[in-house]
Simulated scan of single mutants.
Amino acid sequence: MHHNKQIAIILSDTLQSTGLQSMLIDYFPPVEISHYPTFEALSTSGNDTFDYYFTNSTLFVLNADFFLPRRSKTMVLIDGTEGEGGLSTTNHITIKAPKEIIIEQLEQLFAGDSSCYPGENNKDLSIRETDVLQLIVKGSTNKEIADKLNISLNTVLTHRKNITTKLGIKTVSGLTFYAIMNGIISGDEIEL
């Protein structure tokens, strides 16, 4: 199967787009790349024949209905300094990483080594931990979670500790991204 990879880059940052395009052309030929500065530009193009999509976490979350069904062929560019530890469960490029690491991350995407399939990582979380995670990403405090689930505050804290240990994610933004990527919660349910 030696056809050109059809790639859509949806990034408003021209420098990131150009750098990514250059790396893809240099290290992963043959490729045909279309650049869209906004998600709306991609939508209005009417072109949905892409093999791969590259975007940032903000656009991914805002357009989760589009990207979630395509998550195995979507690459999310992350800063890497934001403490988003759990993003290893998604296809991502750490933009501040050395070139060798970025190339490795791209190779994993193109080889189909995505570890992000619906429910695969949820098996580590109990049903109650999943309930707690949903409430955390919706912005509930520990006390509110305890009240809503009829459990003690100490139990909530224990569940939170278990969630962060199992997933390796310590920030609420990282947990939110994990929950959206794994279908635990939809982007519409999150208060901004």
Rank of each mutant, 00 (worst) to 15 (best):
K96I: 14
E40H: 15
V137L: 09
K123Q: 08
T74C: 03
T55R: 10
I10W: 00
I78P: 01
S152F: 00
S72C: 14
P118R: 07
L192V: 10
L42R: 02
V172A: 11
N47Y: 10
V137T: 11
N91D: 07
F60M: 09
L106A: 05
N56V: 09
S34D: 03
V61M: 13
G46Q: 07
H92C: 11
S126L: 09
Q108L: 13
F110H: 05
F66G: 07
I9M: 00
T90E: 08
R71D: 01
P29E: 05
R71M: 09
D51I: 09
T130D: 15
I9T: 00
I180A: 02
N142L: 10
T49E: 09
D113Y: 15
L106I: 14
P37T: 02
Q21M: 10
S34E: 02
F177P: 00
T155F: 01
I103M: 10
D79R: 14
L135Q: 10
K166C: 09
A146T: 02
I93P: 01
L167G: 04
T38E: 01
I7V: 05
H159C: 10
T55F: 09
Q134R: 15
T176G: 04
I185V: 04
H2E: 10
F50N: 03
L24T: 07
T49I: 13
I136S: 04
G80A: 08
D124H: 15
H92F: 11
V137M: 07
A179M: 00
S126W: 05
L20P: 01
L106W: 06
P29Q: 08
F60N: 02
T158Q: 12
T74F: 02
Q105E: 14
H92E: 09
F67R: 02
D79C: 11
M23D: 06
L20W: 00
F50T: 04
T171N: 13
I136N: 00
E100M: 11
L42S: 02
L157V: 09
L133W: 08
E104S: 15
Q6C: 03
C116S: 05
T74Q: 03
T38L: 08
L153I: 05
G19Q: 11
K148G: 03
L20T: 00
K138R: 15
